[in-house]
């Protein structure tokens, strides 16, 4: 297995580590620890492997589940718009009400066309913008901030 301790965030030598001035102790402790890591039994390694795959698979599940969030959001917006429109109806004068009804009929016709052919693509676009938002939120958050863990 690749030892990634020399990647970013890891020491590239041992000198910097010895603030305590106990180099021999640290070296021996590290060797003992490394030996104990190498001696992990097959059953434990298998459990670690399964845990890692489960974590990664969980992320795939999460991504798939999050794909329905924009759909639910779009449905909620549509319901809210209809509710508001219906709520306004009794207060409108008759002429304005006819205009509202005509506009609503055209909108409904557009919506009908959209729902015939385009619905999934449009909703997928909402999913895309949702993903872009979440990406930007991740990038803007510094490492040391927030409640990690």
């Amino acid at each position: 297995m690749k030892d990634r301790r020399h990647d970013n965030g890891h020491d590239h030598g041992h000198d910097e580590r010895y603030e305590g001035g106990g180099g021999a102790l640290e070296e021996r402790a590290r060797r003992a620890f490394d030996d104990s890591v190498e001696a992990l039994d097959a059953a434990t390694l298998s459990r670690l492997n399964r845990a890692r795959r489960a974590a990664l698979a969980g992320d795939r599940g999460e991504r798939l589940a999050s794909g329905w969030r924009p759909v639910a959001a779009a449905a909620a917006v549509a319901v809210l718009a209809v509710a508001l429109w219906l709520g306004q109806m009794p207060d409108e004068p008759a002429a304005e009400r006819e205009t509202v009804v005509a506009v609503a009929a055209e909108d409904a016709e557009d919506l009908e066309i959209v729902l015939q052919d385009e619905n999934l693509d449009m909703l997928a676009e909402l999913e895309f913008y949702d993903w872009v938002d979440s990406e930007e939120a991740f990038r803007s958050e510094p490492v040391g901030s927030g409640n990690i863990g």
Binding site: M1, K2, R4, F33, R52, A55, L56
Partner: peptide, 15 residues
């Protein structure tokens, strides 16, 4: 990349 990272640290993390 995540799989490689986790595979690289998991054993020491466990210990």
């Amino acid at each position: 990349q995540l799989n490689a990272f986790l595979a690289g640290v998991e054993r020491r993390a466990l210990r």
